[in-house]
Design a protein around this nucleic acid. Structure first.
Lengths: 145, 145
DNA sequence: TTCTATTCTGAAAATACTTTTCACAATAGA
DNA sequence: TCTATTGTGAAAAGTATTTTCAGAATAGAA
């Protein structure tokens, strides 16, 4: 996501491109693959843009989520986390959350297309997105038992 | 879940059976199939047990979730919701959340066993539970477009 | 049954995360 | 450059949840 695209996307929705918005998006792009919390994003943005306020970070994350540039995640730790919506990814990936060490792994699998078709047929519900979380024990924590 | 079983389950963990705990569980059982929020549960329990405090309801729901008697749900409305963990159900059901009217449907499907096997093989991650949410448009809201 | 260590409860205070308010600042199109 | 409009930071407010604490209730022992 370069700034020219971002500016256009904002404009489509009547929003302006500001250094703060760019800075928040930049951090999320730089940390692609991580699951940063709002406070973590705030701290990282502050390194480059010390005057930014926490409220602006919250507002920007809301905006980016609404624009589908990021995905909001919930790993049950009480924090909102975000990851870049990698549009070149064939399918959304799923998260494996270790109940022991809380580590989060990612799986690229997607068997859910079949399921989504069945849901449309049986329930007449048109699925547009899904969120899947698997809980269990990672390799390291499984061995320790 | 009759009170005798509940009492034993509590005892196993060093907890006592109190009228408050029973009352909260009773309400959840009575409303099986619904997705009650904490405040809704509080209001319903209060009808039968007017002196109960909100903190006790929070504490009890935490306990019931920990004991796997209920499932905590998150439909992205800022509220914690709970449903009875129906252990005679073959598989967990999934929720279909309508992005337009916010109605929540349930699907009994479970194609995830195959996926979980693949996850164990490829990622050496032992899945013990999963949460799946599908977002989209219900029959009624699809038609209106 | 009575006693008593322990757990539990209600109310209020405290937390934690998030949103809103408001006055001032910055953006972008004219 | 001008200016309508949107955006921002700081602080306050909001909302859901957890903790504190003194008194009450439970359950096992006596």
């Amino acid at each position: 996501m370069d700034s020219i695209n971002f500016k256009d996307l904002l404009k489509e929705r009547g929003y302006k491109l500001t250094p703060q918005r760019q800075a928040v998006l930049d951090i999320i792009i730089e940390h692609n693959g991580e699951h940063l919390s709002t406070e973590e994003i705030y701290a990282l943005v502050k390194e480059k843009y010390p005057d930014i306020g926490l409220a602006t970070v919250y507002r920007t994350l809301l905006l980016l989520d609404d624009m589908d540039l990021v995905y909001k995640l919930d790993f049950d730790d009480g924090l909102s986390r975000y990851e870049l919506n990698n549009k070149n990814e064939d399918h959304r990936h799923h998260h494996l959350i270790c109940l022991n060490c809380s580590k989060v792994l990612e799986v690229q699998e997607d068997l859910l297309d079949t399921l989504e078709e069945q849901i449309l047929t049986k329930n007449k519900f048109k699925v547009t997105d899904h969120r899947v979380k698997f809980y269990g024990y990672c390799e390291h924590c499984s061995e320790k038992e």
